[in-house]
């Protein structure tokens, strides 16, 4: 019933102008479905209230100045009805909206990773193989893509209307979203968080390509270095390697295989080593020191930018992968 009704509204209205942006991701139709249900619900209740008002205003209009209206007793069952029915409907919408959100909160394990750095007023995007783009993002069709995002300055927000995804891009930490494109073509992305003078010009395009075309694009745009090899170079340039890789005295944490593992902090808490943990360990090493090491590390805040940080983290991640592979063999 509702489906037919929703479909009816959607088609009738779209004869005049579009009612929703292109639905080009796996979650877009699900979001639209809930949206049209809510639209139908809203229109129904608004018209219902309007109809009652209209009817009462006409039927019970004042016919003379001295008119005395008829007594009406307050009915408790009626009060309960219009309390409980809306509560039930709200509960339904809540579960619908939340379960949809919850199901899509975590990116699939096999997602392709892309790294996003926002700054006033442009988007820098980087693929794992080192290919970089500005205000453009090439992705393959039907492959889940996870964006790990951060900002160089103020809060931005990465929004792709056609994919129905949006998340703030904060300085000093990583946030992430994911999507799986289901349509070929190009779709705009915009900055959704007021970030200064040219906030409204901070937009770009997601270009969805066939996987083969994408592989080709990636290969032709690949720089000489992948993210992790650029990170490896930084690792030795900045002197990280001398303590964290070459030293075997046990005074410094060794980083091979550390990514994805749990460590114990000096204050006794446990923490999982993820991108955010590594980021703060580099930028702000003494905020959450790992137990068992007494030497304090110099901070690299201000010495490397967000893109370099992402490279370094990519490199540290490969250290782990290399060890795991070795263990399997």
């Amino acid at each position: 019933m509702i489906q037919v009704f929703n479909f009816g509204i959607a088609t009738a209205a779209s004869l005049f102008f579009p009612l929703h942006p292109p639905a080009a991701s796996t979650i877009a139709p699900q979001v639209d479905y809930l949206y049209y249900f809510l639209t139908a619900f809203t229109l129904f209740f608004t018209f219902l209230i309007f109809a009652f008002i209209f009817y009462f205003m006409v039927k019970y209009r004042r016919r003379s100045e001295d008119e005395v209206p008829e007594e009406v007793k307050v009915s408790i069952p009626l009060e309960l009805t219009w309390t409980l029915i809306p509560t039930a409907i709200c509960a339904l919408i809540f579960f619908w909206g939340s379960s949809l959100f919850f199901r899509n909160a975590r990116p699939p394990a096999n997602s392709m990773e892309v790294f996003v750095v926002g700054k006033q007023w442009m988007w820098q995007l980087q693929h794992a193989n080192g290919a970089r783009e500005i205000n453009e993002l090439h992705v393959p069709l039907n492959v889940p893509v996870k964006l790990t995002m951060t900002s160089e300055d103020v809060i931005h927000d990465f929004f792709v209307p056609a994919f129905r995804v949006k998340e703030d891009v904060l300085p000093g930490r990583y946030t992430s979203i994911w999507f799986q494109a289901t349509k070929l073509g190009s779709f705009m992305f915009e900055c959704a968080q007021m970030c200064g003078a040219f906030h409204s010009s901070m937009h770009g395009e997601v270009i969805v390509m066939k996987p083969d075309d994408f592989a080709h694009w990636l290969a032709t745009n690949a720089p000489s270095q992948t993210m992790s090899s650029a990170g490896g170079q930084l690792f030795s340039q900045l002197g990280c390697a001398s303590c964290h890789q070459e030293d075997s005295s046990g005074k410094y944490p060794q980083l091979a295989g550390i990514y994805g593992h749990q460590v114990t902090l000096r204050n006794g808490a446990r923490a999982t080593v993820d991108e955010g943990f590594l980021r703060s360990a580099i930028v702000n090493p003494n905020s959450e020191p790992v137990a068992g090491y007494s030497v304090s590390m110099p901070s690299f805040q201000g010495q490397i930018n967000e893109v370099q940080l992402l490279d370094l983290i990519a490199y540290i991640k490969t250290l782990g992968a290399a060890r795991k592979e070795a263990a399997i063999q």
Binding site: L34, L38, I93, G97, S98, L100, P161, R164, V165, K166
Partner: peptide, 13 residues
């Protein structure tokens, strides 16, 4: 209610 609903608000925020 659209905006209170998590997955719709992500798009509408």
């Amino acid at each position: 209610l659209f905006l209170a609903s998590l997955s719709i608000d992500v798009h509408l925020h």
